[in-house]
Design a protein around this nucleic acid. Structure first.
Lengths: 198, 198, 198, 198
DNA sequence: TATGAATGAGGGTTCATTCAT
DNA sequence: CATGAATGAACCCTCATTCAT
């Protein structure tokens, strides 16, 4: 990679990082391209060399950040000795919840913008160096000796259940704090898994 | 109520109805105050006599619409002979899902903007003639002979679970159509209820 | 007409006058909406209350100015005792040439932007208080005892001939000054008329 | 001519051809330097090695294209046996009209931008390999046994008359189609010539 | 020569908000 | 209460031009 290519990559990353910072602190609507380029220290025109518009950079960020979260959780899981499927899924859920709990603006950003369909599309379409190992998570289900009616639906339901209950609890302590809510969530997950077991 | 008061009420409702129509068809960001007052047939300044800004009218709409949905479901439930708690909750869930399925823009509008905390706040703070009987839904749990660890959490989890899984399925058919997804959802709900039963 | 209506009319005219001033001195491309509103002493948004964009105001100006020129010439003609058709037409041509000669920027503005078709369309479509009596000029031909193969074509040819030869001569003294050119033009006009006489 | 010189010439021609293509299809204002270099397949900076700016390349194109048209007409004339002056001029006019009729975008481009003075200046100033034999056309008048008051003015008037009447007729069919208009134009030309004959 | 990434002033346009009527 | 003309800051985006490579 030439010096110029390296410089380009750096500019692009500066824009991405700045945009994320601003999106999460001020919200997407309130963030202007002006804000982004100013903070990133590049000229306005430069933004348009790398991204089509504000929503283009947002989508790229979402996919990147979401993938990263799964990746971190997966890494942590591989460090454990857990073998039981339910335990492994609960571990992942717990890890992800804690990531969100530790970075609330990240939770806000992703939840407001991510949907299952968009997520899948972005992962597939964006051929950049997204080292997202999201689909590896499937392997948890697939490699398990147990079988399920429909693994994708099961995964989908768990993801939606966790993310939607987390959102309110972590950000607004509603109806209770995440600490209090967790046992309920985990119980529920175990039951959902059971209901789908063949 | 005097003639002038009536006129005022009519203006306010015209603004609310128009705003809802525009929010659901064009999105909130794309809808301008101009659009609203034009369609409502009032002057621009008049808008500010009734609402603080676009987000004020949005919040009022959300609480109103969400309450209405629960109300409709509750009414329908009262027409049935169902006595078993799980059946009653599934009935409500099904009814609400069908309401959303029949009016996708409504689902989109509410899901994008409603959160448990905001919803509760709005219901409490807005003392207007909101005839929302949302909290009646609690009575389903409370009046049941069965008891649960924490009824509000249970309700919260079900609501979040249903609304988040619905969203993706109804609007984007992801991961599967709502028709296919329903049995899984209902199974999961039953399991969640079980997990919380004392 | 209310005070407010009057004020509106004044704003609109201020914009038109300023735009014309700038268009003729700097050219249309170089003139920005910013320039116009600044000189006119109104806010930028105000411009868009009265005109769609730069080209809208240009078109309205062209029709207005072109109509005015014919009107002035026609008025002057009516003050004369000329009866002979050729003489009357030459008189009009001379008058118009002198108007352009006296206001070269006007000539530049109109010639660059006016075409026979656009001119006719604008005259018809723009229902504003354009007191343009352009078509009265037809009456010169129609009321004459002489008849012509095709009066519109004759008029068209004379107008195009005069305006195109004027343009170069008045603005660039090419190939000769307008003073030198005039006799040639008038001779040519007489010949053109003859060629079309039945 | 060295290999490098050849390459340079090729680049320059690529830019000229592409610019003409874009100017005539999209208009000059809408055409950007970006468009030109992209289509021409050269880098952006390269443009500035050959031309000062957009208007520089435009002027060079106009002179070139206008000269070419006269050249083609002149060539065609030399293939005929016509000896009578009027006939020869009418032949040229007809030929040029047909060239424009066959390539309307060319007519649009040249008419909007060409003026007698600019044309002459460009021809004189631009010493490039413009093999324009425009002035040869003078020889038609000069070599004729007949004599005229002022040959340049005569030529000027005919050129302006033809080009301005053509413009409206060919591009907008106003006031009538070029087919219908031609006899009127030719009649008028004959009269103009007569009026200038000594 | 040739490149093309970077620039940044300035373009047109929008729209929430105000306030005199 | 109701109006709507006027505002002007702020928006997104373009594009001619430069200059280090």
């Amino acid at each position: 990679m030439g010096k110029s290519d390296l410089n380009k990559k750096k500019k692009r990353e500066a824009l991405l990082n700045t945009a994320f910072e601003l999106f999460t602190t001020q919200g997407i609507n309130k963030t202007t391209i002006n804000n982004i380029v100013e903070s990133a220290g590049v000229a306005k025109g430069t933004f348009y060399l790398y991204f089509k518009d504000k929503y283009d950079i947002r989508n790229k960020l979402i996919a990147h950040k979401a993938g990263h979260i799964f990746s971190v959780a997966d890494q942590a899981l591989s460090q454990t000795q857990l073998t039981n499927l339910e335990d492994r899924i609960i571990f992942l859920a717990d890890n992800i919840i804690e990531q969100f709990n530790a970075d609330k603006s990240l939770l806000n950003f992703i939840s407001k913008n991510l949907s299952w369909g968009i997520f899948k599309n972005e992962l597939i379409s964006s051929g950049d160096d997204n080292d997202v190992d999201f689909y590896n998570i499937y392997t948890i289900l697939e490699n398990s000796p147990e079988t399920f009616k429909n693994p994708e639906i099961l995964l989908f339901m768990i993801v939606e259940f966790v993310s939607s209950t987390c959102y309110s609890s972590i950000l607004y302590n509603e109806p209770v704090s995440i600490k209090e809510l967790k046992p309920y969530i985990f119980d529920a997950i175990r039951q959902i898994i059971k209901s789908q077991r063949l």
